[in-house]
Design a protein around this nucleic acid. Structure first.
Length: 129
RNA sequence: CGUGCAAGUCGUCUUGUCGCUGUCUCAUGGUAAUAGUGAGGAGGAGGAAAGUCCGGGCAACAUAGAGCGCCAUACUUCCUAACGGGAAGGGGGCUGACUGGUGACGGUCAGUUUACAGCUAGUGCAACAGAGAAUAUACCGCCCUGAGCUUGUCGAAGGGUAAGGGUGAAAAGGUGGGGUAAGAGCCCACCGCUCUGGCAGUGAUGUCAGGGGCACGGCAAACCUUAUGGGUUGAAAGAUCAAAUAGGUUCCGCGUCGGAUUCAGUUCCGAGAAAAGUUGCUCGCUUUUAUGCGGAAUGGGUAGAUCGAUGGACCCCGAUUGUGAAGUCGGGGCUAGAUAAAUGACAAGAAACUGAUUCUGGAAACAGAUGAGGAAACAGAACCCGGCUUAUAGACUUGCACUUUUU
RNA sequence: GCACUCGUAGUUCAACUGGAUAGAAUAUCAGAUUUCGGCUCUGAGGGUUGAGGGUUCGAAUCCUUCCGAGUGCA
């Protein structure tokens, strides 16, 4: 199983991020807001993900780093929940709680979020097909 | 032993699994070099990385020189690349102890604190209270002269007076004495202030002598004056490379056909094509289309990438100079470099903190042992340094002070 | 990262060049009016002027250090 998360699987290009937030769709699953955008004419390639924590919610830089690292770990260990047949897309995981959470808690929530994302994407595929 | 204060140092560690990041080596890849992929090696947050309060490096732009303006600083000497930082010293304030004096007040020692140039340049400010608030002031009071008649502990009017009362944050030097009608630096001594000179000190300043006489009250974190310093903007500075698309410039080819002409599709004549209008339709007539299309080269430049950007006023150790901040010399070391932003997650254990319970001693307080469980500070580099400020569980070292117990 | 602005009753704003007890509207509470409520009238409470330190006789105001909120710069 591939548990790696190199730079090519992280979203870092300014254009793609603007595209994600301007044209993507989203849903809430506490404590996350999941923003995603299916790339057109790409087939089933590698997805790219970004993690975001608001400065308004968590004031201290240490706390923000702490949450982002735990989110990244949780995604890294559970990214297989998105089936490889799914189309390539940009994913944004935004932390909207103002409390610091334990890793186990974040992990369960991430799993739920990814499962929901996978079902939404597969339904979209069926509708288009 | 404990507690407190001051100064300084440190501010978790080990193992395993799965990752992130730059770098080195090897392999793969490829004409070659990058990029990518795989394996391995040795690295990967702080004392404040924070606040952004100062200073410097660095970069771009500006700049003959000078002045005005604006901003900052402000006892002295030194340290430093520089500073609003630091060191040492001086002066002032406060506290305590001792001490001199009738008194105002002074002296010595210790601790602590201090944004500490100039209101003896100018301008300005001081509510309320108070008679009077900065060219002082006469309310009560005190004293003198004393019209008058009610002859009194009376007193119109005039004058003297800042010692006393009262107001205030502040009442125009203070204390003691002389003096006077009562008073007053009016006079004297002392205390304080200030000026001049001598001496000591690099200097702030100290000290001694003489003079002035009581002014020259307070506020400059009021305007301001003086001295010194500062060009402006900040890495989102700036430098290099540079896709796609659109557009710029240059060149080439085509330009409905024929003829003539021109530097030139430049102009003319004839014929023709397409579209629109006129009409119910065709012919005819009129108008429009042709300053466009394609290709190549080229400069600017966006996305993006690279550099800036991590070897430096560097760190450690030793010697030496200096009261000290710090300097000099010698030896050793290389110690994060990310960019939608790495330095992590999980598990186990070990030190340090807190300490339920149980056991022993004891009348008790408590002491010694046991050690379940809990908690694990403040906080995350963003171009780099030197400071300052603020946050911080706990541990250790040194010095000082104090309490209690035991010997 | 850099540059800058602002914090006053529960809320919206005042308070001159430092001058005393920080003022107004609204909201709250109480009373009057009404059969009851609203409107209206009268009155009261409510502020460590964001926090600490300093300058001054005196600080919301001046200086300084923190805290919080906000704005601009590609």
């Amino acid at each position: 199983m591939n548990y790696r998360l190199p730079k090519s699987e992280r979203l870092h290009a300014d254009k793609l991020i603007k595209e994600l937030f301007n044209e993507g769709s989203s849903f809430f699953l506490y404590p996350f807001k999941v923003q995603f955008f299916v790339k057109k004419d790409q087939g089933s390639g590698t997805s790219q993900v970004l993690f975001s924590v608001s400065k308004k919610k968590i004031k201290k830089a240490v706390g923000r780093n702490f949450v982002k690292r735990r989110m990244r770990e949780a995604y890294r260990l559970n990214k297989a929940l998105i089936p490889p047949t799914a189309p390539a897309m940009s994913i944004g995981l935004i932390y909207v709680s103002s409390d610091l959470m334990e890793f186990s808690e974040i992990q369960t929530k991430i799993i739920l979020a990814l499962k929901k994302l996978a079902t939404i994407v597969s339904e979209n595929q069926k509708q288009h097909a």
